[in-house]
Design a protein around this nucleic acid. Sequence first.
DNA 1: TATAAGTGTAAGTAATTGCTTACGCAAAAT
DNA 2: ATTTTGCGTAAGCAATTACTTACACTTATA
Lengths: 103, 103
Amino acid sequence: MRRDVFQAIADPTRREIIQLIAHKKLNLNAIANQFDISRPAISQHIKLLEECGLITITQEGRDRYCQMEFKKLQEVAKWIEQYSIFWNKKLDALEQHLNQKDK
Amino acid sequence: MRRDVFQAIADPTRREIIQLIAHKKLNLNAIANQFDISRPAISQHIKLLEECGLITITQEGRDRYCQMEFKKLQEVAKWIEQYSIFWNKKLDALEQHLNQKDK
DNA sequence: TATAAGTGTAAGTAATTGCTTACGCAAAAT
DNA sequence: ATTTTGCGTAAGCAATTACTTACACTTATA
């Protein structure tokens, strides 16, 4: 089973879950209520998110609170950043071209 | 068929393809030669990458050169960035905590 | 003109994914 | 003590994914 961050954020439902718990940790039902799909389906998404380190779960009585682990998102951020120099370069080239036209 | 950037970069082979063509546009065979999987398999990955806007293909005779479209990666960058304030906040909190300990 | 090189696509397949329903269990509320 | 709430997990299933091999079609080369 592949369990990397890129795979995890590929699913739109999981991205919505991330959005939900970004500001405030929520228990599983609170999350599941926001979706049309079944609670077990959300439970499985949560399990995957935990297994790949994107969230941590803290048990409080019968509730399991899900909290974002943003540092794990930095893996993606880092991957993206290595390419940002390229799009900046392209923008710079465009800028330079436009400046030339001005002359 | 889902054809979004998040789905596209979820596959490790496709991320390797991106890495390969980041610096220099390459024709399909040049890309395929870098992998153990078959040429048609790469062809299918390339097709998906093009369909979701991550690369553009320019035909030159019998060669099809693949070029990165970095601006499309910004979709992911933007998604990530919205959360970067959270991990910064957390780092700030940690920093503050450490500073307190110093006193 | 015959052959080689670069490629897309179709069909088949095994593995994976994203769901469902059904069940069971522990903690809280009544 | 019984019921309700919050949850995990198993089994089943349809759709999708990531490949493969086989074939056909251009474009370049000999």
